[in-house]
Simulated scan of single mutants.
Amino acid sequence: MIRFLKGLILLPIAIVVVLLAVANRQPVMLSFDPFSNGTPAFSMQMPLYALIFAAVALGIVVGGVGSWLGQGDTRRDRRAKGRELARLRGEAERLRQAAPATVGRTALPAPVSRA
């Protein structure tokens, strides 16, 4: 069922991407030199669809890195809580193993009767 839903969602997206690439095949000049109008020193010609896809891919990577960096505190807290949980589980297991040995040795105090 999930495969069908993935196909149902991804197929129209793939069709739109292919149509975008076919419709925008004309070359455009990508310039990395903001000071030159004529022939920029750092420039390249590429199809418009490649420029659009590269910009989208760069946006995904930058957004992912930003999200990963923003979650650093959460990951640090989770690691610390995991270490504390492991320590407490070990202590609980140690106390469980020690408890049967001490139960037989301790005597409960006698009840106090009031007459």
Results as ranks from 00 to 15, higher is better:
residue 1 M to G: 14
residue 1 M to S: 13
residue 1 M to P: 10
residue 2 I to D: 11
residue 2 I to E: 12
residue 3 R to S: 14
residue 4 F to A: 07
residue 7 G to S: 09
residue 7 G to Q: 08
residue 10 L to S: 06
residue 10 L to Q: 08
residue 12 P to Y: 11
residue 13 I to M: 07
residue 14 A to K: 02
residue 17 V to S: 09
residue 19 L to V: 15
residue 19 L to S: 15
residue 21 A to R: 08
residue 23 A to N: 06
residue 24 N to M: 10
residue 24 N to F: 13
residue 25 R to E: 14
residue 26 Q to M: 12
residue 29 M to K: 09
residue 30 L to D: 03
residue 30 L to T: 06
residue 36 S to K: 13
residue 37 N to E: 12
residue 39 T to P: 00
residue 42 F to A: 13
residue 44 M to S: 08
residue 44 M to Y: 10
residue 47 P to Q: 08
residue 47 P to M: 06
residue 51 L to G: 00
residue 52 I to C: 08
residue 54 A to E: 04
residue 55 A to P: 12
residue 59 G to F: 15
residue 60 I to M: 11
residue 61 V to F: 10
residue 61 V to N: 01
residue 61 V to C: 02
residue 64 G to I: 00
residue 64 G to F: 05
residue 65 V to H: 01
residue 66 G to P: 04
residue 68 W to R: 04
residue 69 L to K: 01
residue 70 G to T: 02
residue 72 G to C: 03
residue 73 D to C: 01
residue 76 R to C: 02
residue 84 E to K: 04
residue 85 L to H: 07
residue 86 A to E: 14
residue 90 G to I: 01
residue 91 E to K: 10
residue 92 A to Q: 12
residue 96 R to A: 07
residue 97 Q to W: 10
residue 98 A to V: 01
residue 98 A to Q: 06
residue 100 P to D: 02
residue 103 V to R: 15
residue 105 R to H: 05
residue 107 A to I: 00
residue 109 P to S: 13
residue 113 S to Y: 07
residue 115 A to N: 01
